[in-house]
């Protein structure tokens, strides 16, 4: 994986995309092989390094009982000490940073001003939750972003908007979201043109790994039909 690279992870349901991402993230242990990040094995990596890897989970994993602001701030817990973590539970800490991240995640500025930060998570719609999770990811300021089907349950307009936030590059070639590299698993082969590289999985096996612009529709249909 290279700096600035955007990778799409494709495969049918159950092909092992989520598993691969969880292994890459270190929350699952692989039976063979090893995941390395900046030269260090992910299992033995100190916490300081681990916070460089951010994950956007398929079911978001927001804490339902907390407010939007507290959830967004929980992305930054890795960078702060315990006292800050406790303060986050009792006060609205770093509101401006929170609002900034929510805005970057594409939430309506109006809505944010009207006290979205204090709203409980369970009052939000599906799309809004997705964005709060994204804002949390941005708040973490990770070097590597792993996203597990971030747009599976979204309507096409919101989905493309969300991908914009993650994938768009500045004219200098930097990713707008601040990460150095990004891996996203998808169910929408029609979107692969927005990526640099495509990895295909089939029943846990790697069956395809090529630049996105060399991909043919035949390759894709093979990936989704065979087996």
């Amino acid at each position: 994986m290279f700096e600035g690279e955007r990778i799409a992870l494709l495969g049918r349901s159950g092909a092992g995309k989520s598993t691969l991402l969880a292994i890459a993230n270190g929350s699952l242990r692989s039976e063979q092989g090893e995941v390395r990040w900046c030269g260090a094995s992910i299992r033995s990596m100190p916490r300081r390094k681990r916070r460089e890897i951010g994950m956007l989970w398929q079911d978001l994993l927001l804490v339902e009982e907390l407010s939007v602001g507290q959830n967004v701030n929980s992305g930054a817990l890795g960078r702060h000490n315990l006292i800050w973590g406790l303060a986050n539970l009792l006060f609205n800490v770093d509101q401006s940073a929170c609002k900034h991240c929510l805005q970057r995640a594409g939430l309506d500025a109006d809505l944010i001003e009207r006290g979205l930060i204090d709203a409980p998570i369970r009052q939000l719609s599906g799309g809004q939750r997705q964005r709060v999770a994204l804002a949390r990811l941005l708040r973490q300021q990770p070097q590597l972003i792993l996203a597990d089907e971030p747009i599976a349950n979204l309507d096409p307009a919101i989905a493309s908007d969300l991908l914009d936030h993650l994938l768009n590059r500045s004219p200098e070639g930097q990713l707008n979201c601040g990460a150095k590299a990004i891996v996203i698993s998808l169910h929408q082969p029609e979107l692969v043109h927005r990526f640099d590289r495509v990895i295909g999985l089939q029943e846990g096996e790697l069956v395809m790994d090529q630049p996105a612009d060399q991909l043919t529709p035949a390759d894709l249909s093979r990936l989704y039909e065979a087996g």
Partner: peptide, 25 residues
Amino acid sequence: HRPLEALISAGVHPLSALMTALNPG
């Protein structure tokens, strides 16, 4: 426990992660 695991895998101190992910519930 998944929100907790998510926080821990993002390099959060375990105590801080427990307080944030499980404490509210």
